[in-house]
Amino acid sequence: MEVLLPLLAAVLVATGVFLVLTRAMIRLIIGLSLIAYGANLSILLAGGAALRTPPLLNLDGPYVDPLPQALILTAIVIGFGTTSLLLVLAVRAFGATGTDHVQELLEKPDPVLRQRIYADPERPSVSPETQDAPRAQGPL
């Protein structure tokens, strides 16, 4: 156990880093989850991974330390929320650009959303990003 778990944590983090360094958004998100699992596992190890009895008073000690598990639970809940947010973000970005590739997302000038949101002819767009486009209407 004591040897196997650190090894597992290392493999999880290594795989996660590899996936984060790839350019597909979904792989990146899965990689982030793997890194978080590795971090959680290291908390479990920090509390001592020896096989002990659960911390209940009607059982005989030595008890396992419950705090790392509480910490991991907190970290998992937070990680769940942020990962789902990131997934929604990835879906929206895919809908806007039609690509799952991070580099293309960063470089793509967007034709779709700007027309939908800034289609008001009375008021030319003043968004900082859209200012990059040549100004057809002139100053405000």
């Binding site: 978080a36 971090a39 908390i43 705090l67 910490l71």
Partner: peptide
């Protein structure tokens, strides 16, 4: 979000190690 998630994972690991 990605940068902050990576930083958070490192923070959690550091807190675990400190414990």
């Amino acid at each position: 979000v990605v940068v902050n998630l990576v930083a958070s994972a490192i923070f959690v690991a550091a807190a675990g190690l400190a414990y």
